[in-house]
Design a protein around this nucleic acid. Sequence first.
DNA 1: GTGCTCCTTGGAGCGCGCTCTAAGTCAAGC
DNA 2: GCTTGACTTAGAGCGCGCTCCAAGGAGCAC
Lengths: 122, 122
Amino acid sequence: MSMGITIQEASRKSGLSAHTLRYYERIGLIHEVDRGPNGHRTYAGADLDWLDFLTKLRATGMPIADMCRYAELRRQGPQTAAERRRMLEAHRERVRARIAQLTGDLGVLDYKIDFYNALESR
Amino acid sequence: MSMGITIQEASRKSGLSAHTLRYYERIGLIHEVDRGPNGHRTYAGADLDWLDFLTKLRATGMPIADMCRYAELRRQGPQTAAERRRMLEAHRERVRARIAQLTGDLGVLDYKIDFYNALESR
DNA sequence: GTGCTCCTTGGAGCGCGCTCTAAGTCAAGC
DNA sequence: GCTTGACTTAGAGCGCGCTCCAAGGAGCAC
């Protein structure tokens, strides 16, 4: 079944550069992508799903080091599920806090902008 | 009137390190802080207010380069008020977008965490 | 065979935002 | 006078997350 797609296609689908895909593999974020007969990487559907999730974690500001930790736990199998859940819960709290902080700072921006508007419309 | 406070006190009040305060001055984010007779910086109340605002912009992810641009406009006087307002409005949009994105990603985290919980409580 | 293109690797380089070092000045305390 | 400590400067260094480079190999077109 599916031979998997090339690194360029995986790059396009994941939004990560081919450079970054190789880098992620090098540091252990993605584990041992399959190779074609010529040694070229062939990404499977599961790899793309995993990349999507990684992208989500990155987008929410999780450091690469933490993502590596998570990836390693995942590789160790189901008995690490609880620890992975705890990692995600802790991260969720950080994201919530970040949203709260940004929302607060938005108020400062609103205030400043109103101030400029008052200046101009007078 | 107020001689201003030392760099250490300004550091404590602003939450920025003394190193960072000097750095911000070097790159033009803060303009020419007053000096005491011995050449030491003395920060005035206005400097601290400005630092607070800078900190807000940083916290919301504005790049240093943009902050420098804003600082320069501010130095040029009231005739740049409209451009500064436009900068802040554009930045506010980016912050709103960031909040929206984080909020969306939070949903993915919730979903994953629920999945782990379902695994465990079965 | 000669290009051309796409892939491979190890390792170097980069942009950002600090963060720290080295060497020197100055004022206060003993 | 000497030490201590906080300050000054120019400039080097660092951690993160990529991003790119050089050298080489495999497959296809001509």
